[in-house]
Design a protein around this nucleic acid. Sequence first.
DNA 1: TATGAATGAGATTTCATTCAT
DNA 2: AATGAATGAAATCTCATTCAT
Lengths: 193, 193, 193, 193
Amino acid sequence: MSTKKERLLEAAKELFGEYGYAETTFKKISDRADVALGLLTHHYGNKEKLFLAAGLDVLCHFLQVLRAATSNTPTGHDGAVEFCRAYLKFSLEPDSYWLVLVRCSPYSDMKTSSDRDIMNEKFLEVHSVLEAELERGIQDGSIRPLAVPETAHAIIALMVGANRTRLLTPYCPPHLYEVAVDFVSRAIAADRN
Amino acid sequence: MSTKKERLLEAAKELFGEYGYAETTFKKISDRADVALGLLTHHYGNKEKLFLAAGLDVLCHFLQVLRAATSNTPTGHDGAVEFCRAYLKFSLEPDSYWLVLVRCSPYSDMKTSSDRDIMNEKFLEVHSVLEAELERGIQDGSIRPLAVPETAHAIIALMVGANRTRLLTPYCPPHLYEVAVDFVSRAIAADRN
Amino acid sequence: MSTKKERLLEAAKELFGEYGYAETTFKKISDRADVALGLLTHHYGNKEKLFLAAGLDVLCHFLQVLRAATSNTPTGHDGAVEFCRAYLKFSLEPDSYWLVLVRCSPYSDMKTSSDRDIMNEKFLEVHSVLEAELERGIQDGSIRPLAVPETAHAIIALMVGANRTRLLTPYCPPHLYEVAVDFVSRAIAADRN
Amino acid sequence: MSTKKERLLEAAKELFGEYGYAETTFKKISDRADVALGLLTHHYGNKEKLFLAAGLDVLCHFLQVLRAATSNTPTGHDGAVEFCRAYLKFSLEPDSYWLVLVRCSPYSDMKTSSDRDIMNEKFLEVHSVLEAELERGIQDGSIRPLAVPETAHAIIALMVGANRTRLLTPYCPPHLYEVAVDFVSRAIAADRN
DNA sequence: TATGAATGAGATTTCATTCAT
DNA sequence: AATGAATGAAATCTCATTCAT
């Protein structure tokens, strides 16, 4: 059986993801967790901190998945492509609570508060994972020589945008995710001669 | 001198852009516009509609700029690249109130309400502009054969992500915008042989 | 007919005086004033500011009374004595709402917040009124030479203490106020030879 | 090493004195005492009772000091003057936790609850000490004939007021305490002829 | 068109007290 | 004696919207 503290975090991940920060209330969270209202501040301090805790929880799991996906790939190019596939796949997993992270991440609309620095820093690890693959690919010749940090940012920017198109907008075309991965694959591939 | 109605929209664009929807209040807007509180509902109906009006105002201007940038380009490839440059440039213009659009667009975190359908529809025109260039490029041989709508979505996704990296996150590398444009250029370019 | 803003201040003076700051709630005030809850912050900003407004309202009236009482007294000694009488009398007037001032004045238990600076400054005028009488008395020979600011503070300290004994403690002897005035009269009187 | 019960009382004296009743919470007290929250009610019943215990603790010490100061004085007048000196001196002692008593005493702003009767009664002993000196002084001719209870109340009122001026207001003149003692000395002294 | 007082539901947060362990 | 999770009532404050003028 899960503790009430865990039940709160679970409910928070569901609701923040579904309704966003502003429209998720203490009442809705404590009702869904079937827990007293006051426990929220007792365990998490305030709404902002709970939001962050929910986002970080998803981010940590996300990082595990990304690391698993990139390890054991033959080339850096494959690693980078697998990174993208894992990124997009994770966002579609029914119980990954991905949307909380979308709303809490540094790419979200929300004004960054001091609490969010923790999120910003942790999110950089996502970039590190990708940068490692890009460097490996340049070494092993599977990726053309390019500016690593910029390219990592560009690729992740594409992931962010494709993901938003799919999950937030009403007009995602059927194969966007595949196209996006091809897009990346092509743009970083070493010249074939 | 501008009318009070215009002053309200101006203030709304500033504040929605800077603070987001939830943290912008009628009081703040009417204070900044130096206009009576009641005029807001009088002229714009309600908060949601005002938000939309502010976003659409920016979007319309944005579309003009995109159309101007893509016209008179020698090839479709050039047109697509100019589209990207204009997109990113507009987002940095000091008085374009770009951030309102970021927060109001279909790519934003906000739950879509019925009013936002208008925004969604209008935003599709941005895609149309790009799709026209892609089609032209495939015709004139400057762009490799590819799925037009998907690719347009992928390119715009990259614009959305790069733009968010630059304006919302704390860690944008110096040349991200240039790299993003190169990225697109490379990914859609026809093979050179 | 009084405005709702005035009714709020009236209710605040009653309730803050009777129950103190902490035990007076927005609900109690708006109920007593028969006015919507939200009007309180609309007109006065917050609880602290309303408290201050209530206290200042009483203080201003108090100052008028003190000035009236001390003017037209034959000697400085008489002026000082009348000051004390007026001070103590005012505190017993049924509709002077004196207790608000007791709880809001610089002599109260409350932590001083930035808002209270206004109160502190205004309260100094009470001292000025008394000091003027002491100086006059030293000039006209009705008061023995003494340190004016210190003595004014001592006399007011006695008023503060006597007043608190009467209104806050359960054991005020019947003639305390008279004794206190005699006490002052004797302590400042010029030697009779 | 002190017991946890004692540590709680110590922390309570500090915090009630510094922040007042309303702004001192169980959490703050148990945090400062570095003791479990539940021990507070376990040992002291409830907040009001703890407040009282803190105040009484200080009051008892205060009474010892007053009694020591007045004994072995040659005349009643000297005894009364020493009473005043000891009163004011105690209030300045760094580790007397005087402010708790200020906030808990019958002269404080707080509404008296049933628990406070104990405080009221105990505080009367302070008056008894002074009244004994006044009576002695009238007997031994060092003090002019006067109404003993009223005068004791007036003197203590002056102490209360002077003390509040010094500790609570921002405008205490340098020698107020000395002037206050002189003030008393003069007002009760027997005529010298 | 213009004003801003008025409303009251609802949100976040606080906190004394209880109680199982 | 000791712990701190748990409760939920209550407090302050916010704010979109209405409406009389």
